[in-house]
Design a protein around this nucleic acid. Structure first.
Length: 913
RNA sequence: GCGGAGGUUGCCGAGCCAGGUCAAAGGCGACAGACUCAAGAUCUGUUUCCGUAGGGGUUCGCCGGUUCGAAUCCGGCCCUCCGCACCA
């Protein structure tokens, strides 16, 4: 249907308010939510899949009589919107281009720059795009009750979040402590993925090195290592010949590291006191002691040492590190590698074997050295076992040894944790990114035992589709530990007990679905009072007793009561529908926060995980340019086609590819559906023969399947049955020479009702053209209303088709084009014998018919006993068969042909002439 | 490496949980035919191999096992995809 037709119905739905949901104690409720979209940009086809799926479910539930609440609100917490706005202010070309491209779809050319100017204020980005998203969702026909709309930045909501954090705190789930974060030196601020140049494509993570101390007479050297388990294999130290080294004091002792490194350490440790530069020769002339063993070793210069990685000092383990091995060789030092690890697996690679395998000849072969290093590290980590020369760590697996040795080093004050970035990184503004340890970080402690237990209980009581995500969810709950829940900057709610901090954007979005149940009322209360007192929140959302509302006036009291009733009616969430990447974060937090704070009755009840949507086989991303906006979907393809595509092309859980070929295929089917329902002529509908009855019987079967599958959230299966198969059946009726129109007349209204959840605009249009004044979108229909199916008619048709396909096969095998076809149908005598033989009573077979036994044994598998009027069926359809093969067909009842081929039940005797 | 999902006939993709009626749905593509001046659209049939009678052979990543019987159950192996954290 034309987009304008879709607009028309969207307008009518809106005006009639048919999707506004009110509590109704006489009806069962159904509450479905999708996580709120983040409002830094418009949404694309990929996002649309989950919302579309949810809408289909919401509409289906409405069809079957549920009182449905399908709400929506918007997310704006966190740093991205802030960061984008900042970049626009800075005039960052990449960001400007991104927004210009996006706005092109929504604005006139001449208005774009003015809009972008407004985006210098972050709030404008959020409000602009939430407005866009509302429009786009509307244009896709979503049956959302927009009265539920709010944002994570709304003051009333922030009051709720504060209450939630007080709650968590009083349960002992909030902690404060040290935490390493990625940090920009110049900006003096923690940075996220989007703040880092190329951070989205090439992720930067925090790596935990072990800083290892080598004591010397005048000062000690610190080397940073990822592999402290190799400590017994140390032969020497390396320093960079081109690097500035500096002395500093820490806890009274004097240490030396590279200048770059000291800068980093200052962000990780307190009380470091820089003393000043130190000469290379001062380092090289000294002896140092290895930790644990206290062997004397020396430092040497080597070009491969990077002053800006770790401490700029490297301890050398030539027995297990390719760089060290090659460096010693190249410097011509007389140091023998010490082996401290052996491999227990198949692969017995060593430094030496890899050097020769990869043909590494000098330190310049850095790519190959890196490859060798990676292979060896991995191998030795998973397969390695400590040899006998490792003191009390001998015999341990490398992973275990690493932990033990670390512990020992820390205990002896010969080591400490040194954080480093996983790669060199800069912010988009060009400032260096390092790891800083924040001393005052707030956490939610998800590792608490009773909390995990309660959460598992919730997970195990819920519905999951697909079911296997239940395990994933339980794993996620187990796997969560302390999570930083606040940041120094970003949009969001201030942490109530430490206002320097802003609650992090996933942590402020866990309980909000409960707000949907009464958003209008609660924000009204906030408006009147100018705040949202905890007593109100406790009463409305947490089963508080009405007594605690003693201080409020009648108006507030009544609003609160109304809000409470709505919440009690709608909450918990029956289905939360979202994509798989949310499992280990959002969904886990969502479940755990419910489990901790809210009463059992309000726990989540079901989760549906939707698969990825690809665009022409590729992941969708704005930078790739394959992100088709939802606006374009509704104008170029129409909402109904998109919805049908989403419903029918793949199961919810599997990957769906949006590509023109498949869209065209779905469109073809859609067009033929519309044609069938709109192009028929009235009046030619009176008499029905077997085919039409067959169609109606089949239709009723399809309907039953539809309801069963929809109830199990198998949307695709349901619509294959009620859309594709019904269309195929109609085609079949047509080819059989049946009366298609009378078939359609018979099922039209029911068919429209079940198709409405997927293609609501089309169905409304046709529905109204049938003379209905109401909306098919809110008509009811459920399994109980499905008519009967006549099984014998279906069997008869099957029998006819099987006979025809037998005819075809014989013709194909023989190559004969017959003038006449004689079909002899099984007679009573043989049928009776067949029944006897089927029941395995071979001795009851009359003697004169015993000769039939061998043939029966051969073909018994193919016998169909349940069609008893074969002669009639074939006679009635004689003309049809004749038409198919272009020859005469004679049908008769067969005699018994002892010793020859016979006609059997369901398997007539066929002779071609 | 850990955790999860998966490998099906030219391609996509059902089936597998509840073994037989599975040579294995549906779609796309290909081929042939009908319609048409022609193309497109639409419709019909074919699309693993063999077959002058409705039959038979060989198939569902690989190797074994259970069973009268396995695409379906069990064990091992190979390969692909997704997640592995402070980021929305």
């Amino acid at each position: 249907m034309d987009p304008s037709v879709e607009r028309k119905w969207q307008q009518k739905w809106l005006e009639a308010g048919i999707f506004q949901s009110e509590p109704d104690q006489d009806r069962k409720k159904f509450f479905i939510t999708v996580p709120w979209p983040y409002t830094n940009s418009s949404l694309h086809v990929g996002h649309g899949r989950t919302y579309t799926t949810a809408d289909i479910i919401a509409r289906y539930k409405r069809l079957t009589g549920y009182n449905v609440l399908f709400p929506m609100a918007f997310h704006q917490s966190g740093t991205p919107i802030l960061a984008f706005s900042e970049r626009i202010r800075r005039g960052d070309e990449k960001t400007l281009k991104l927004y210009r491209d996006t706005l092109k779809e929504y604005e006139n050319e001449e208005d774009i720059e003015a809009r972008i100017e407004e985006f210098k204020e972050p709030q404008n980005i959020a409000s602009y795009f939430s407005e866009r998203i509302v429009k786009d969702f509307t244009s896709l026909g979503y049956s959302i009750d927009w009265r539920t709309r709010f944002t994570s930045g709304d003051p009333f909501y922030q009051e709720f979040v504060k209450w939630q954090f007080h709650k968590l705190n009083s349960l002992g789930l909030i902690k404060n402590g040290q935490y390493p974060v990625l940090y920009s030196i110049n900006d003096r601020n923690a940075v996220g993925e989007d703040d880092i140049a190329d951070g989205d494509i090439d992720k930067v993570t925090v790596e935990e090195f072990t800083g290892v101390i080598f004591r010397g007479k005048e000062f000690s050297l610190i080397a940073a290592s990822l592999r402290p388990e190799t400590i017994y294999g140390i032969t020497n130290l390396w320093i960079s010949p081109s690097c500035k080294y500096v002395k500093f004091r820490m806890n009274g002792d004097i240490y030396v590291v590279s200048e770059d490194s000291l800068e980093k350490m200052e962000f990780q440790h307190q009380n470091l006191e820089k003393i000043g530069p130190v000469n290379e020769s001062d380092i090289l002339s000294q002896e140092f002691e290895t930790p644990l063993e206290h062997r004397k070793i020396k430092a040497f210069p080597s070009g491969f040492v990077d002053p800006d990685n770790g401490t700029g000092v490297v301890y050398s383990v030539p027995g297990h590190a390719v760089w060290d091995y090659m460096a010693i060789k190249e410097a011509g030092l007389n140091l023998q590698p010490i082996k401290v690890l052996e491999l227990t697996g198949q692969d017995k690679s060593t430094v030496e074997s890899l050097v020769s395998e990869l043909n590494i000849t000098s330190l310049n072969d850095s790519d190959r050295i890196k490859e060798a290093t990676q292979r060896l590290y991995k191998l030795e980590f998973y397969d390695g076992k400590m040899l006998g020369n490792n003191g009390r760590f001998s015999g341990l697996g490398s992973e275990k040894a690493r932990d033990e040795i670390k512990k020992e080093l820390f205990n002896n004050e010969e080591g400490f944790i040194f954080y480093e970035t996983s790669r060199k990184a800069q912010t988009r503004g060009g400032s260096k990114v390092i790891v800083a340890v924040l001393s005052n970080q707030w956490f939610i402690d998800y590792s608490v035992g009773w909390w995990k237990e309660a959460s598992h209980d919730v997970v195990n009581s819920m519905m999951f589709y697909p079911e296997f995500y239940r395990n994933a969810m339980n794993d996620a709950v187990d796997w969560l530990r302390e999570r930083p829940c606040a940041r120094r900057r970003g949009i969001g709610t201030k942490l109530p007990f430490d206002e320097e901090w802003v609650i992090e954007s996933l942590s402020d979005s866990t309980l909000y679905p409960i707000i949907y149940t009464n958003q209008e009322i609660i924000s009204r209360i906030f408006e009147i009072l100018g705040r949202l007192p905890d007593e109100i929140i406790e009463y409305v959302y947490n089963e508080g007793k009405e007594e605690i509302l003693g201080n409020f006036n009648q108006e507030i009291l009544e609003l609160a009561r109304k809000a409470r009733i709505a919440k009690d009616y709608w909450y918990g969430v029956d289905i939360r529908l979202t994509a798989a990447p949310h499992i280990s974060n959002h969904l886990a937090f969502y479940i755990m926060n419910h489990a901790a704070i809210l009463p059992k009755r309000d726990n989540p009840r079901g989760i549906i995980i939707s698969g990825l949507l690809l665009s022409n086989g590729a992941k969708i991303s704005k930078s790739k340019g394959n992100a088709i906006s939802l606006l374009k979907i509704s104008t170029k393809y129409t909402a109904d086609l998109y919805r049908l595509f989403v419903a029918v092309s793949a199961d919810i859980s599997s990957v769906l590819d949006w590509n023109e070929t498949e869209i065209a295929a779905v469109k073809k089917k859609y067009d033929s559906f519309v044609d069938y329902l709109t192009k028929g002529e009235e009046g030619k509908t009176k008499e029905k023969t077997q085919v039409e009855h067959w169609f109606i019987s089949r239709f009723n079967l399809h309907l039953k399947e539809f309801f069963t599958k929809m109830d199990a959230f198998d949307i695709r299966g349901a619509y294959i049955s009620v859309f594709y198969e019904v269309l195929n059946d109609l085609k079949y009726v047509e080819n059989r020479g049946g009366n298609v129109q009378s078939c359609i007349e018979a099922v039209k209204e029911q068919w429209l009702k079940v198709m409405t959840p997927v293609i609501p605009h089309t169905c409304e249009e046709i529905w109204s053209s049938l003379g209905h004044e109401d909306f098919v979108s809110i008509r009811k229909f459920s399994v109980e209303d499905v008519g009967k199916s006549d099984e014998s008619i279906i069997l008869s048709e099957n029998y006819l088709q099987e006979t025809i396909s037998d005819l075809r096969e014989i013709m194909k095998a023989t190559g004969i084009s017959p003038q006449t076809i004689n079909v002899e149908v099984c007679g009573e005598e043989v049928r009776e014998v067949a029944v006897i033989m089927k029941e395995n009573r071979l001795k009851d077979v009359p003697p004169n018919l015993k000769s039939l036994i061998p043939e029966f044994m051969k073909i018994r598998k193919g016998l169909k006993m349940d069609v008893t009027n074969e002669l009639e069926i074939l006679n009635e359809n004689r003309e049809y068969i004749e038409g198919l093969f272009g020859c005469r067909v004679n049908v008769s009842k067969a005699n018994v042909y002892p010793g020859k081929k016979n006609a059997w039940p369901g398997r007539p005797l066929i002779r071609l002439n």
